[in-house]
Every structure is written in C-alpha cells, then in structure tokens.
C-alpha cells in the first residue's frame, strides 16, 4: 500500500487518536496509534485467538465419544466454530503488524498466553454441556462489550463471534437439560461437572480490579468497556436463575441474593490457584501446548501439499498462456 505523502507532527497524531477514541469512533489499521495501544491490543487479541484454538482441545476429545450422531454433529460444528473464531481473531491481530507465523511461534514458545480455563480437563461427557453453558456463557459476557471496542478489526471480529457463540451456549444448556431428565447417575454427573467448572469460569474474567494493573489504561483507550469485577458480577447474576431452571447448585456457600445491592453476593475465587494456572502450573498446561505443537508438526505435509498444488496450477496456467 502507498505511504502518506505528508507527515503530521507527533502531537497532532496523538491528538487525532485521542479525539477519535473520545468520540467513540473506531481506530482503523492504518491510523497512527500509540505504541502502547498497539502492544496491548496485540497481547489481548493474540491471547483471545490462541484461546479459541487451544479451546478446541477439551471438547474436541469428546467428538469420537459423543453418544449419538446428533450430538456428534453438533459438537463437530461447535469445535469447527472455535477454529473459525481463532482465524477471525488472528486476521484482526495481523492488521496490527504481526504475522500469523510469529503468533503461532509465540504461542508454541509459551510467550503468549491463552485463557486459563482451557488448562482444566474435560473429564466426563457432561463437561461438554457445562463448557457450553458456563465457559461459553462467561465468554459471551466478556465478548458482547468487546463488539464496541475502540479497534475496528477487533470489534468486527467480536460481532461475528458473538453471533455464533449463542449456539454454543444453548447447545450446552440443552445437553445438560437432557441429562437432568435422565437417571440419578446422569444428574450426579452434571452436578459434579458444574462443581468443577464454576470457580474456573468465574476466574475467566481475570483478577479482581485492584489487582489488574493494565485495566485502567485499557479502559481509557476504549479497548475494554467494563471492569473484570463488573463483568463477573453480571455473569453470576445471569447464571443463578439458569442453574435453578436446570436443577443444579453452585459450590459456593456464600452465594445469596442481596436485596440492597440488587445483585447476588458470592464468595472469592481461589486467586492463588488462578495465578498458579496462569503461570503454567495448571492441570493441563503442558498437555495443551504439546498437543498444539504435535498438530502443527503433523500438518506440515498438508501445508506442503497445498503449496505444491498451487505451484503446479501456476505452471499449468503459464504453459496454457504461452502455448
């Protein structure tokens, strides 16, 4: 693409950027932006993209063991969506001047993170339902406000993702409802699954506000629209009536309606566990990265074949053109 022929002063550029963000307009890829804004976005969008890709693993492992063709088709479609979401986000991230290969390399080297929730195992088939209901539910809570994030390509990717995410949550809830109408054993399976996922789902919103050093700047830049604690509260308030409809409980003795606040009170997640998983010491961290590395390596022949086929088509076209 052609470059600017005039170079406005640094102050003027900063002013234009600030005014654009302040008036709730979007920053687009070729606009000038502060280096910190760019870096924060690369970190956040890459983390988000990696989460979608790594997030295929816990549920993907259940595709071959789904109990019916219907459930298998649904799960396949869902996991395929996660791949698509990862690609929308990688595409958005690349507009910030990082290459796809670089992003993959940083993930595999452990230098960029993905959501800690995917470092927990999916131990039973009911986890497929719980992940759809609670994990995708929490993701929706996080993602809906991101549709209005200040960086255009990220917001547009989030709009596409949110449209598709609703299917994920509903199929999970329906799966659990079906199991709750089954045997005592199936109901116990659902409750056990919910018990394991409730606290990690609450941790998906990130550390408490007073322990989240980057939040204030991200909000000032319009990248984030709500604080971690605000979104966590919103998720708890949404989830309690859904749990009642389902007939399960959350493993939190402090969970109760607070008339005065107009919100549910709830207990404190185990933040030591959170930091432990974030820093690499969760139940599945090593397994997830090893699997991603393996699929990357095993995909070499596919990439090679695609390149060879493209090369062959190009040669054939040239021959036809010259002959």
């Amino acid at each position: 693409m052609s470059q600017a022929t005039t170079t406005p002063s640094a102050d003027a550029l900063q002013e234009l950027f600030d005014a654009t963000v302040a008036s709730n307009q979007r920053i687009e890829p070729r606009d000038w932006m502060p280096e910190g804004y760019r870096k924060t976005l690369v970190r956040q969008v890459a983390q988000h993209a990696h989460s979608e890709i790594i997030g295929m693993q816990p549920e993907g492992a259940w595709i071959g063991r789904a109990p019916s063709l219907r459930r298998k088709a649904i799960l396949l479609a869902k996991v395929q969506d996660e791949a698509g979401h990862g690609l929308y986000l990688y595409s958005a991230c690349e507009t910030l001047g990082v290459s796809r290969d670089e992003l993959t390399r940083l993930l595999l080297a452990g230098k960029q993170k993905y959501s800690s929730i995917f470092n927990y195992p999916a131990l039973s088939y009911s986890d497929v339902g719980t992940i759809g209901w609670l994990v995708d539910g929490a993701a929706i809570c996080n993602q809906v406000p991101l549709c209005r994030t200040s960086y255009g390509p990220y917001g547009r990717a989030m709009i596409r993702i949110c449209k598709e995410e609703s299917f994920h949550q509903r199929q999970g809830f329906e799966l659990l409802m079906t199991m709750m109408r089954g045997t005592d054993e199936q109901r116990a399976m659902v409750q056990e699954s919910v018990n394991r996922f409730w606290w990690p789902a609450l941790m998906m919103f990130g550390p408490p506000d007073d322990d989240s050093p980057n939040s204030a700047q991200s909000m000032a830049w319009g990248i984030k629209r709500h604080s971690n604690d605000e979104l966590r509260q919103r998720f708890v308030d949404m989830s309690v009536p859904q749990a009642e409809a389902l007939g399960v409980t959350f493993p939190d003795p402090e969970l109760r309606w607070n008339e005065q606040r107009g919100h549910y009170d709830f207990g404190t997640p185990d933040w030591d566990e959170f930091w432990q998983v974030v820093t690499g010491d969760g139940p599945c961290n090593a397994q997830r990265l090893a699997h991603r590395q393996r699929t990357y390596d095993e995909g070499v022949w596919v990439r090679e074949a695609a390149s060879a086929f493209a090369e062959k088509s190009r040669n054939e076209n040239q021959e036809r053109a010259s002959g």
């Binding site: 690609l87 595409s91 086929f309 493209a310 088509s313």
Partner: peptide
Amino acid sequence: HVGSLHAPDGQL
C-alpha cells in the same frame, strides 16, 4: 469485506 486469510493461491 469480512476479513482476511492466508493461502498459497487464489483458488485455495
């Protein structure tokens, strides 16, 4: 316009 992707050629 909906986004971008990588491919070895236009057909793919």
